[in-house]
Design a protein around this nucleic acid. Structure first.
Lengths: 243, 243
DNA sequence: GTCAAAAATAACCAAATGGTTACCTCGATG
DNA sequence: CATCGAGGTAACCATTTGGTTATTTTTGAC
């Protein structure tokens, strides 16, 4: 019953599901062909892109301290000197990579169109979207974790924090209010708390899949386990939101 | 109403609350006095303890790659040579520290006595216990995060994984079953999923408090925010569990 | 073609890091 | 007293790392 309900209204996110299981490959780091005049003009910009992609990949798998600038340069197919010229030192590289993964999520979030959906369906879509983003983007989780290990110092110093504010919180508030007006959601729900719960329920499962798998002696990265988890999260939150 | 309910039956965990806010200091690393014959006998054991305490502190704040063996030796007030003699290389040190923080949590968990409580109260206690353990033990979260960054390789190789299995899952299953029999909890709840939710709802809030604070421009480490979060988590889960 | 500026490269460097070796201290035992 | 061995120390080492310098190649306007 709940499952059939789940199948509806998920066109937007459906394609995300296809990219399960969890590791997403970033664009191949191929050095630019040197004699293509068409791309000559913005080669620096393209190089910078490649550097950032490489930085995200390296940082996400090794953490800040474990990442090697040499490795990033190698991945990006660029000389280390140019890496320093285009982005800056290791810390600047980290911040740029961090902003990039945040931005990527925000951009996906902006594609969500919830206004036309009934509150309950909109809420479900929002929940599923978040969960799938986590399963599909381990680099996002990994970088957030490491930034928190550093006590959020870099993000704090970012001049673009404001841009990184999630539109999802506003969307969530609106959907919540609509549902409450319709009498299908309970009263007295703090939208920020709910947002943190929506994210947290999936975050922990994805981010800690390895230790969880080891402790429970059961591998949680299979497609079935992921889908089971998604349904459980929907059940928990929709169950909670009942009036 | 819910809040007054919360005040009951929390004697066991009450003391935990006193240790908010979040940073717990580990025992001071004071070198042993060299002329105390009473402790001469088990000085090696004591040294090993100090090393592990120091390792947890260093690893939890710096991560595996960021941690320095020299710094651990310094913290422990011991020579690096002896550190290698007592525990082993950096990786062995990590595993020992990881097992130590897991064990510490399991030990606390064993003090929980839920049998005598009514299902709803037992469930609440279990939820609050978990949340407070997270707020009180950032080193636990930090080390789990970093172990997952390493894809759980070390934990997988540990010979003591079995011991690290949480008794909480069994407790949770029992409480759940009792509540279902009494008709106060809904049917069709997978205990493992519920366990992951209980943990995850607090884990994300604590582990990611810095990035969350930066993004929301609001500092979530204050006592009020922590208590608000705790109550929300209880509300979500108890709300979900309603039949 | 010429040539100056931009882009890219390889070689280099000082500092730090995990790990080891050679040596010292001191109390218990014969 | 001699000595033996566990416990402890400082100095050392090969390698790695973030970051830079000197140099060459490419590009595009003239």
């Amino acid at each position: 019953m709940v499952t059939s309900m789940a199948r509806r209204g998920l066109v937007t996110v459906a394609r995300l599901l296809q990219s399960l299981p969890m590791m997403r490959k970033s664009a191949a780091a191929r050095p630019l062909t040197q004699n293509d005049p068409a791309q000559a003009e913005n080669r620096p910009a393209a190089s910078r892109e490649r550097i950032l992609d490489a930085a995200v990949a390296e940082f996400a798998t090794q953490g800040f301290a474990g990442a090697r600038v040499d490795a990033i340069a190698l991945r990006a197919g660029i000389n280390k000197r140019m890496l320093y010229a285009y982005v800056g030192n290791k810390k600047a590289l980290w911040l740029a990579a961090l902003e990039r993964v945040y931005e990527a999520k925000r951009q996906e979030e902006r594609t969500l169109n919830l206004q036309r959906l009934a509150p309950q369906e909109a809420m479900q879509l929002l929940i599923r979207f978040n969960f799938r983003y986590h399963t599909d983007h381990p680099e996002f989780l990994a970088m957030l974790n490491d930034e928190n290990l550093q006590r959020g110092m870099n993000l704090q110093e970012s001049k673009r924090v404001a841009e990184l504010y999630s539109p999802l919180l506003t969307l969530l508030s609106e959907v919540l209010a609509r549902g409450q007006a319709d009498g299908v959601f309970r009263q007295n729900v703090d939208p920020m708390q709910l947002y943190i719960s929506v994210v947290g329920l999936g975050y922990f499962f994805c981010s800690n899949q390895f230790t969880l798998s080891a402790i429970f002696d059961r591998h949680l990265d299979s497609v079935e386990e992921v889908l089971t988890r998604e349904q459980h999260i929907v059940d928990v939150l929709m169950g909670y939101l009942r009036p």
